[in-house]
Write a protein that binds this DNA or RNA. Structure first.
Lengths: 157, 157
DNA sequence: GTGGGTGCAAAGTGTTTGCAAGTGT
DNA sequence: ACACTTGCAAACACTTTGCACCCAC
């Protein structure tokens, strides 16, 4: 889904590179092809593995050097999950304001958009004298299905 | 403010230790005295410095070994601000559900509680098949005052 | 041709841990 | 006494960086 959006995100990033006089090398190609062909959250190491499948010559250093460019361009967002690794979320081009529910039972991460919630956050910010720019909401929760049925539909992931 | 609450938090933690057959050493004393005498967010290194003012014998290792106990007991919460260090928030005993506004202009962190927001988050979770357990909301924002007056009341911190 | 880009390996840095000695109960 | 604790320093693990060579423009 949203394949066209992913494609346009790729083009946006290439524009971003041009605007900064940065070059589109084959390694960067492989990395951004990877980033914009998944909706999963991933770590730097996973991105390295996946990118190497497309281009063996991609190195860890280049991945680490490209990630800041991707976040700076706003097409990728860092996610701190309290784990050792930093995770990256490629879904901000489609849904810039989405939030996350993290299942304590199976570690699955579910995304959602909610306009009313967003509006309320903006109102609260205003009331406190600020203008909301970005927002990160992580809800940690348990799975209702697991409690009722003894099994979680996500458990097998 | 809420000095009594801070005091009771300290007692709660001592109970927590007893319940796990863990000892109240002088080093742990110094550390929890420090934690429960501030409302500031702090890093492990800051906690070490402050604790050493009370008890020179506190070591970095003990701080790092005590922090997980404090978070496990629910009296302290880890905060990932995307910076290099992990920050800790000692205000969860008083306000277990509070959220943060982080000012992009001065890096100041403001806390707030909002019952309606909390309720909405619970509703959303339910709708998606989950039961909300904990929640972390970070709003990144700019200071209105700075824009209007050219100065931010927090700027000098 | 030139300035940015790359891989490699070494360095950096917050955090964790093994160990021998210390201490609360 | 016994088990839990501690400080120290070494070990870890993710990330960053210096350098010499390379390549996109």
């Amino acid at each position: 889904m949203a394949v066209a959006d992913k494609e346009s995100a790729k083009l946006k990033f290439i524009d971003f590179l041009e605007g900064k006089n940065l070059r589109l090398t084959s390694q960067r190609q492989a990395i951004i092809d990877t980033v914009f062909s998944t909706e999963e959250h991933f770590t730097a190491e996973q991105l390295l593995d996946w990118s190497r499948e497309k281009d063996q010559s991609v190195s860890r250093a280049t991945v680490y050097r490209t990630l800041p460019l991707l976040t700076e361009s706003g097409l990728l967002q860092q996610m701190d999950l309290g784990k050792d690794y930093t995770y990256y979320d490629p879904n901000y081009c489609d849904h810039p304001h989405h939030s996350h529910i993290i299942c304590q039972d199976c570690d699955k991460i579910v995304e959602f958009d909610d306009e009313k919630l967003e509006k309320m956050e903006e109102e609260i910010s205003q009331k406190m004298g600020f203008s909301l720019k970005t927002q990160k909401l992580q809800i940690s929760a348990t799975c209702d299905q697991l409690k009722k049925l003894g099994a979680c539909k996500n458990k097998d992931c």
